[in-house]
């Protein structure tokens, strides 16, 4: 039997500061055989470890269409993320995964997609966004609404500019009132408010959202007002995890294990879960 707790080793090729407290790592697997065999789908997550400090759970933020590497973005908040922060290019980390379910991309072909991301919540969406953009002709209209508390808190700034300049994306960026700068050319307002303004049609559409819990709550309400049915709304949850394997017993919401049955849920599925997240 294999040891399900034993991580692969991965080398850090690139480090980017996204904000004052958020970093992105670009990683490749140390073992060429694993690098060759490794596949995942947008929405899946991994357990990243700094040995001696422990493991931390984040989604894979890069697209499965970019096979040579994986990326992850994390906010420095705890013991492990603090240890990750101090690593340098060339350092090795541990990785277990990919775990969990994924965004139902196969149900999105030919549809209009609306991505709504807030803060670091853009990371899981980014995996799907690049996946979709790499297969652009398979989808209809694409709208991306990105928000953050302030201009400084926007992640993937260079990519946002790239998306903004593309003619095949309807791109909207916003920052919370008070978070704007003199140079800011995006909108000023909370994500749900901006969503209301841009009034997307629910016809043949899927909305995919991730962000802070309070944002998700109001985005879901707004989408429903626009006529989206709960099955047309997809989000991704996080709960504290240790194993990622459905064993350690802490990420469950009712009978649902976020690590096995999630982290991606439709609003229809979420509505059936007890409020335990």
């Amino acid at each position: 039997m294999e040891n399900i707790y034993k991580p692969f080793t991965a080398i850090i090729d690139e480090i980017r500061w996204e904000t004052a407290d958020t970093k992105t790592f670009k990683l490749h697997f140390d073992d060429p055989k694993i690098a060759e065999a490794f596949t995942f789908k947008a929405g899946q997550f991994g357990e990243y470890s700094v040995f001696g400090e422990g493991e931390s759970t984040f989604c894979i933020a890069s697209s499965p269409t970019r096979k040579e590497y994986i990326e992850c973005s994390f906010k420095v908040v705890g013991k492990v993320t603090n240890a990750l922060r101090s690593l340098e290019v060339g350092d090795t980390i541990g990785f277990r995964g990919p775990y969990g379910n994924h965004f139902p991309i196969e149900n999105m072909y030919g549809k209009n997609l609306i991505f709504i991301g807030g803060g670091i919540g853009l990371a899981p969406l980014r995996s799907l966004i690049w996946n979709v953009l790499d297969l652009r002709e398979m989808f209809n209209d694409i709208t991306i609404l990105v928000g953050a508390r302030s201009v400084n808190d926007l992640v993937y700034k260079d990519e946002l500019t790239g998306w903004e300049n593309r003619s095949d994306i309807n791109f909207i960026k916003t920052v919370d009132p008070g978070g704007e700068t003199k140079e800011w050319n995006g909108k000023v307002g909370f994500v749900p408010t901006v969503l209301k303004e841009i009034a997307v049609s629910p016809m043949n559409a899927v909305a995919i959202t991730c962000g802070p819990p309070i944002m998700i709550k109001y985005v879901l309400l707004e989408l429903e007002k626009m006529g989206f049915s709960p099955s047309q709304i997809v989000t991704t949850l996080e709960n504290r995890m240790k194993c990622g394997l459905g064993k350690c017993g802490r990420c469950n919401i009712g009978s649902t294990y976020v690590c096995i049955d999630g982290p991606v849920f439709t609003a229809e599925e979420l509505n059936k879960l007890p409020i335990d997240y």
């Binding site: 707790y5 470890s49 400090e53 422990g54 493991e55 064993k247 802490r250």
Partner: peptide, 23 residues
Amino acid sequence: HCFDIVDEVRYDKGIRKKNWDAC
């Protein structure tokens, strides 16, 4: 059967452990 996963390190060597945990 719930557990925690914790690292223990001495200098440049260490182990990763599963420890019992409780809800």
